[in-house]
Nucleic acid binder design. Sequence first.
RNA 1: GCGCGAGUAGUCUAGUGGUAGGACAACGGCUUUCCGAGCCGUUAGCCCGGGUUCGAAUCCCGGCUCGCGCACCA
Length: 573
Amino acid sequence: MHVAVQRMSELMEMLTRRGFIWQSFEIYGGMAGFIDYAPLGNNLRRKIENIWRRRFVVEERAVEIDTPLIGVEEVFIASGHATSFNDIAIECKNCNRIFRADHYIKEKLGIEVEGSLNAIKEALEYYNVKCECGGDFKDPAPISLMFSTSIGPGKGRKGYLRPETAQGIFIDFRRLLSYFRDKLPFGVAQIGRAFRNEISPRQGMIRLREFNQAELEYFVHPGEKRHENFKKYAFDVVRLLDKFDVEHRITLKEAVEKGIIAHELLAYFIGKTRRFLLEIGIKDEKLRFRQHKDDERAHYATDCWDAEVLLSIGWTEIVGIADRTDYDLNKHIKHSGEDLRVFIPYENPIKVKKRKAIPKMNKIGPAFREKAKEISKKLSEIEIEKDPEFIEVKVDGEVLRISKEFFEIQEVEEEVSGEKIVPHVIEPSFGLDRITYSVLEHSFDKDTVDGEERKVLRLKRVVAPVEVAVLPLLSKEPFTTKALEILELLQSAGFYTEYDDSGSIGRRYRRYDEIGTPFCITVDHQTFEDDTVTIRDRDTTKQVRIQISQLISALKELLSSGKSIEEFGIPFR
RNA sequence: GCGCGAGUAGUCUAGUGGUAGGACAACGGCUUUCCGAGCCGUUAGCCCGGGUUCGAAUCCCGGCUCGCGCACCA
C-alpha cells in the first residue's frame, strides 16, 4: 500500500505540474470537492467522452440530449432525492460521533423508523436513545446532499442542482418516446455535470462535489430485457464479484444462464462497459464488476453492478449499471399526472367479450346536468359482472351512486389491439472524472532508457491529449521554419499538436513521454536532403524515417490503431 | 463533521524566535545538439486571518487545503 500511495503522490505532482488537473479556487485558499480541468486533463476527458458517445449513443438505437443543471423542486420530490438525500443525522454531545439516525435506531432497537425528522425525534425521545459511549445526542438535524438554490428574484421558486443527469431524461420521456416513433427499445444519453454536497470530499478526483457523468437510460419492455447484439460479448470472460462476495471468472453467457446476472440486457451492458474501459486504457487485470448487496442498492434499483478498478486507494467504483425498473417513470406518472406509458400493439388484435353499462343519456342528462358527461364516461369504462342495482363512480372526488335506471347492461365485443405498459430502464452510469483519473493511474509508468530512468505515461493513442509533437533537431534556422511548416500542416489536418524547440532533443522527448504523447516528429539535417522526417514512438523510443507527404495519412492510421511505426517507414538509428 | 499529522518558488525540500537557502523545472544565451549533457544568466516562495513579541516561516487561536483513521457516500 505504501508504494501505491507514493506512486499516487508522484502522479498527482505530475498532473498538477504538467497541466492535467488543478485545485479549484487555488488563489483563494481552495475548496475541497472541486477541480479544474487544466489543458491536458480537459482534452483527455473530452476524448474519453467522445469514445463513450460512439459506443453508447452512435452504436445503439440511442440519442443524446442536454437538460438544465438546475431542477425545480418537484422533480426531486418525485424522484425521491428530496427525501432520501435529506438523511437525518444525530451527533453525540460527548464523543462527537455522527450517525445516520434511521440506521442507528434500526441497529440498536431493531425498529424500522420513518426517515422524517419528526418520526426520528419521537423515536429518540420515546426510547431514550443514547450514544454507544453513553453520551446524549444533540437534536437530530437533516443533512442535505443536494445543493439548493432559488430561481428568480426575491424568494423565487425553490430549485436544486441536479444530483444525477438521469432525471432530465425521465422528465422528457413523452417527447422522447414520440421522437422514437413510439417504439421500444431506445436509449437516451446525457453527458454533463451533477452536484452532490458531499460531507467530506477526499482523494482528489475521486469524490467531488461537482462532477461529470455520462449516463444512458435504455428503455425496454419489461418482458424483453435482451439485446440483439449480446452475442458480441457473450463469450467475453469477465471477473464478477456477486452479492455473496463470491468471485467468478466466467463468460457473460454463463453468468446469465446461472442467474448470477439477472438478465441478458444487464450482461450486455457489463460486456459493453468492459470493452469500452479497455479501449480507453483501463487494465483488464485491475477491473472487476461487483454486484450490490441487497441492503446496499439505491432506492430505485433491483439488480445493480458496479465496474470497479483497482487504484492506489483500493477498489473504486467508476461505473454503475443498474436495472432501475419502472421506478422513476412511475414516480413521475404519480407526481405529474402525465401518462408516461407506452402502447405495445399485439401481433394479432384480440377480441374480448365484455359486459358493459351503456349510459342512458336522456335520463342522466336531466338528472345530473353538468356532471352527466363525466358520469357517462366513467360508466363506459367499467366492466360489469352481474346485473347490479347501482354502480358507484367517482366524479371530482365525489362518489356518486348511479342506479340501474340510468344505464342498461349489454354484452359487447371489443377489439383490443394492444396494451399500455410502463417501460423499464437499464442505466449504465459513468463517473467521467473517476474514469479519467483511473486511466491516468493505470497509464503512469517508469522504465529505463540508456541506463536512465524515464517517466512515461502510456496512454492509449486514442485518448492522448497531445497526439504529436513537432521538434526541430536544433533550435535555429532552417530547422525551426521547416518544423513550423510541418506543424501547420498537421494542425490543418486536425491533429492535437505541440511545437517545441527549447532545450536538447533528448530533454524534449522526455517532456512528451511524461504527458503521454504517442509520437514525436523530428526535423533533422536529412530533412533538407530528401524531404523526410523521423517519427518516434513513445513506448519503444524507436524512430523511422518517413516522407513528409505521407505524414498525415500515416499518423491518422497510427493514432486509430495499435500498429507499429515500422510499418510506415524505414528504421532510423 | 470529529480526531491525528502536514502546508516554504511551478515541483520537491532545508530552515524551531533575529537578513529565507538549495535541487529540479521553466525562460534567455553559448555549445555542428537524436534521448533529462555542460557553462553563464533570469524569473520565482513562507496557505489565509488574528494574537503574543522589539522582532514570527518558526509560538498561540481561528479558517482553508492536503494525507490518514472514524463517520458519510442516496
